[in-house]
Design a protein around this nucleic acid. Sequence first.
DNA 1: GTAACTGCAAAATATTTGCATCCTT
DNA 2: AAGGATGCAAATATTTTGCAGTTAC
Lengths: 140, 140
Amino acid sequence: MERELEKLLKKSRLSVTDSRVKILELFFNQQGALAHGDIEKRTGEKFDRVTVYRTLQAFLTKGIIHTIPTNDNSIRYALCKDTCEEGHHHDNHVHFVCNDCGNTTCLEEIIIPEIKLPKGYASNQVEMIVSGICRACKKG
Amino acid sequence: MERELEKLLKKSRLSVTDSRVKILELFFNQQGALAHGDIEKRTGEKFDRVTVYRTLQAFLTKGIIHTIPTNDNSIRYALCKDTCEEGHHHDNHVHFVCNDCGNTTCLEEIIIPEIKLPKGYASNQVEMIVSGICRACKKG
DNA sequence: GTAACTGCAAAATATTTGCATCCTT
DNA sequence: AAGGATGCAAATATTTTGCAGTTAC
């Protein structure tokens, strides 16, 4: 695992540091999205708040993670697939936000349907966010 | 116009005040979404920043406007249709964010397609945000 | 007249920047 | 050794809260 993460960082021309490995690990260990605050909590506030900001920013611009738009003011981040490159993110799956547990999940298996835009509009990215109750919460 | 706005405010059991009428007017006059900052600018900072926050909050909870999720940390607000009621917003159209002019538009004529969620998930709202270049910017 | 709304001040949060020090390569 | 990354301090920006004065009904 460590190896895998290091490889990804190196591929993105980022030096391999403790904070980057640990934060990247968080993303790999959980199938979903993380907000800035989650990251601070789950690393046990091991890293400076500023470092977290800068790490996320670095991952974003290198195309390692992407943002997921949400209705509440909290930006969430999730891992990009291999098809994403630096400065060019594209992801074609649906995101699910649970109103109960608050978790955001990537529904990789659900492809966003094509839509026909009005004349004159050009699209380069489409996001689809479904909110409701997730599988885990429905059971409980 | 004034009349129409007043009626809407009264229907929502909000008193008709200068700030509410002016801010609501902004939404009616422009077919699109506004961020907090836009509102401050376009009212010429006539109202206190706090009043703008509280006015938007009031409109939100009364179901007069709704938020549109965006990738950058800026929440945008747009008018709800008549089908929205207090505490129960539903809108089924696509939103378009222009990467050039930054404007967010409601594409009322484009209905969000139905999708099939994995077993165990229940949805109560779906958002679809397309970003790219809008008609006006493409021409320019 | 009363309840609701506003504006000011201030507190609480969140984000960004500069810089000296430390770590990776 | 050199460049990049971190942590601290501090500057900004954003959002929330309390309260006294004002306005709508």
